[in-house]
């Protein structure tokens, strides 16, 4: 298991994140499947591009939404995303 705050997650190969206007949400597409994402999941996954560490993603989100204390929520979601094979590490 990677050290979560320092690892640099990216969307897994063969997965695609895109905005779907008809569904009014971001979705994650993969072979013969789709996950509809809520706003916070999408905000995190949009930043999973293999260049930002988990800690950097937290800092960006806290700035963007003028809040603090998101580290636990982000770590929790990233662990879930990794279990689901949505993300991998650059």
């Amino acid at each position: 298991m990677n050290d979560a705050p320092l690892s640099k997650p990216r969307i897994a190969r063969h997965y695609r994140l895109q905005w779907e206007p008809v569904q009014d949400c971001h979705v994650l597409l993969y072979p013969e499947g789709m996950v509809q994402l809520n706003r916070s999941a999408a905000e995190i996954l949009m930043r999973c591009d293999g260049t930002r560490s988990a800690a950097a993603i937290v800092a960006e989100l806290e700035t963007a939404f003028a809040t603090t204390g998101l580290a636990d929520d982000v770590a929790h979601f990233l662990a879930h995303a990794r279990d689901q094979h949505w993300i991998e590490h650059a």
Binding site: E20, V22, Q23, V27, L29, E32, G33, M34
Partner: peptide, 8 residues
């Protein structure tokens, strides 16, 4: 245009 996103 209707919203289909998976195509087989």
């Amino acid at each position: 245009a209707l919203g289909a996103v998976q195509c087989g």
